[in-house]
Design a protein around this nucleic acid. Sequence first.
DNA 1: GTCTATAGTTCGATAGAC
DNA 2: GTCTATCGAACTATAGAC
Lengths: 227, 227
Amino acid sequence: MTTNLATARAKATSKEEILDAAERLFAKSGFDGTSMREIAQEAGVAQALLHYHFKTKEGLFEAMFSRRSGAINRIRLARLDAMIARGTPTLEEIVDSLLRPTIEAGHDPSRGGSTFASLILVMGASNLDWQKGLISASYDAMAKRYIAALRLALPELTPANATWGYLFIIGAALTQMSPTGRADRLSDGETTDSNTETMLSRAVAFAAAGMRGLAARPDPDTTPGRA
Amino acid sequence: MTTNLATARAKATSKEEILDAAERLFAKSGFDGTSMREIAQEAGVAQALLHYHFKTKEGLFEAMFSRRSGAINRIRLARLDAMIARGTPTLEEIVDSLLRPTIEAGHDPSRGGSTFASLILVMGASNLDWQKGLISASYDAMAKRYIAALRLALPELTPANATWGYLFIIGAALTQMSPTGRADRLSDGETTDSNTETMLSRAVAFAAAGMRGLAARPDPDTTPGRA
DNA sequence: GTCTATAGTTCGATAGAC
DNA sequence: GTCTATCGAACTATAGAC
């Protein structure tokens, strides 16, 4: 049912093949940098078929985006619910369940990272209203559940600090989910960003410690004076 | 000498006005989403003048990007050098000197955040070679100096962990430097992302604690077994 | 559901006057 | 250094056959 890049069947419907092609190309070059012609060619269909199925380029983008973000969020919340049902989870468990599904479901075997992560990043940085609206509609409900879970695991967190912590975690990890070789270069070969598992374990440690650091200080929103 | 958006003179040279217009528009809509016609109109000059000064659209983008990234990196390294000359700086001081210049120099008074931060983000997420090359050429040297400074302040950091920590810090903060109203929405009004100073103080606390958390555990690159 | 063909628009870049 | 005018290419979207 869920169409995972890493496990895609050899023959999907042409509609799914269009969505797969769109995901690859939009992630590589962004919305405006990708043409309907390119997507049609990558999917092996005529350009007119894209308009038949999705009406406009923006419609195709939204269909492609919702398919993947919906699948990722379902996995996230299922794991979060299962953890909470077993008792109060640790910060590390919460962060892992937040980050790992983006790597698993967005995995592209030909590149070794999450193509979908680049996509979210490009959209999040965009200041176009329809893209920001799509981000909100796709993620706000899930984000609020995770912010609540962070406060459950770390009661000293104020609502404001929990919100900022969530945003920092997403930003820190999402920017590192598509291997670029940058970590290899900056460390002179001491590490590599092609191993998503070691990246993820470091992101979890960094994020959990960061949240504890946030919780251990006054809230700058409500503490006047030197910020 | 340095052209700061927040303190720009009423009448700059037309070349600078083109760069300013390009920075605003590229940050809003990305490279492919911005046309030379729009930039010319925003700058109040003829489109042909853009090609006279910068030859191609890519040339204009690189000139715009290098002007701002160069100014920001000079401020960063000057502050880092001054701190080290006074003794070993704290993690918090290092992180502040890394993040604050992007807000100061990239500040857009009409929007309250750093337009330039969105620009770097869009480029970093891009998989286009010339954009990744521009990121490397502009930031790798500075990044290596900061990674060394982090290890100076926190000797337990391995080179690999220091590199990943640096990348996490950049990702966490850069994604939050352009106010989107998302923090306001996710916190139900308990905080706001329109105050860059409280955002920055939280980012510094989160990042410093995250680095200490990274330093306090085995390095997953060199520790086989469950990652 | 899928195709070919094309209408209508917008783009980056250049030529050439001043 | 700055402009007007325009070329040729690429784009989104649609019309209409099968």
